[in-house]
């Protein structure tokens, strides 16, 4: 049976090769005790490629990379309304080589989805900036101001159909907050993402929407849609002529925001390094110009401020979600 033994011998050689290879690769992973960072850093984006979160994530990675000797690889881990990507980072090794970017969906997910991470499960290190919601109506609706909108909705409750995300999504929360703060009732019509909502307001299926300014700014310029107000502290740089809600007498600030985070338990020196790195990047004028080109507001905050900001957001959101029947996990 000479062929069997030869076969076996060859298998042995193969196994040996594979084992050696494994050891070499394993050794590469463990270049311990070298200055941080000495390996590539991964930035996890919790929405698919091409979306808003992906675009800002990649610009941040691009400009942060210029301050480092190692590359930053951007990967998209999407699913479960953003919760999958957060979990991916929260469960990764807390060595500082995995960083994530997330948005307001974090706060809503923790109450809606029993399997999503809570704010305490992760370590927020920097706020990138807000992405305020706005209120848009079709031009042919004859509504030209926020006051008219509120009056129309009050005189005929639920007659205005507003397009927004699924419950718990950013534009859905903005619509719910609008109902509360203006004391009106709308019919909330859910769409899967911003693009179908844009299509629906253009086709006339809905009369208004609570999307961010940049989603409908071109249609506003073309006169198909009126943007009635922006739900932010200050006016949006892309539409400086449009007043905020506060200016029009309704105390409403709503919309998305974006922040950079780490898993809990990253060593202090690595964490401090990353916080400084991203803060410097976000304050870099070149970066800010590039982000503005992509229609992003950049208002950097330190880790401590970010945590306070997110906690305040959480406090504000909880009663809204509770009232909407969306708190299914982690009751307060």
């Amino acid at each position: 049976m000479h062929f069997t033994s030869r076969f076996r011998g060859s298998v042995a050689i193969m196994v040996l090769t594979v084992t050696t290879l494994t050891m070499i690769l394993g050794a590469c992973d463990r270049q311990a005790e070298e200055p941080f960072p000495s390996n590539p850093i991964t930035l996890v984006v919790n929405w698919p490629a091409g979306g808003g979160m992906d675009r800002i994530g990649r610009v941040i990675a691009e400009y942060a990379r210029r301050r480092l000797d190692v590359p930053i690889a951007v990967i998209n881990v999407s699913g479960a309304g953003g919760a999958s990507g957060v979990r991916h980072v929260a469960d990764s090794d807390p060595d500082g080589y995995t960083v994530g970017i997330l948005g307001a969906s974090l706060v809503a997910s923790q109450y809606i989805n029993p399997n999503a991470n809570a704010i305490d499960d992760i370590d927020l290190i920097a706020l990138v900036g807000p992405d305020p919601a706005a209120l848009e109506v079709r031009s042919d609706s004859g509504i030209n101001s926020l006051a008219e909108y509120v009056q129309r909705a009050q005189s005929n409750p639920r007659s205005i159909k507003n397009g927004n995300d699924a419950p718990g999504g950013v534009s859905h929360i903005a619509a719910t907050l609008l109902e509360r703060s203006a004391n009106i009732e709308l019919t909330l019509v859910p769409y899967r993402g911003y693009a179908p909502t844009v299509a629906a307001i253009l086709s006339g299926e809905i009369q208004s929407s609570t999307l961010p300014v940049h989603q409908l700014i071109e249609q506003h310029k073309a006169g198909e849609v009126n943007i009635l107000g922006v739900m932010s502290e200050e006016r949006h740089f892309m539409a400086p002529d449009i007043p905020t809600f506060k200016e029009q007498g309704i105390d409403l600030v709503a919309g998305d925001w974006r922040a950079i985070f780490l898993p809990n338990g990253v060593p202090d020196d690595h964490r401090a390094f990353l916080e400084a790195l991203f803060l410097e990047t976000l304050n870099d004028p070149d970066f800010q110009a590039a982000a503005e080109q992509l229609s992003f507001f950049i208002t950097p905050m330190t880790a401590a401020d970010t945590k306070r900001f997110v906690e305040a957001f959480d406090q504000e959101l909880y009663p809204v979600l509770l009232e909407a029947g969306l708190v299914r996990a982690r009751h307060k």
């Binding site: 490629a49 091409g50 979306g51 992906d54 675009r55 990649r58 693009a195 940049h214 700014i217 071109e218 249609q219 310029k221 073309a222 198909e224 080109q293 992509l294 229609s295």
Partner: peptide, 14 residues
């Protein structure tokens, strides 16, 4: 469309 936005082009009615 994501790619267009990244390159500063905003497809729309205009």
């Amino acid at each position: 469309m994501g790619a267009l936005l990244i390159h500063g082009l905003r497809p729309g009615p205009l």
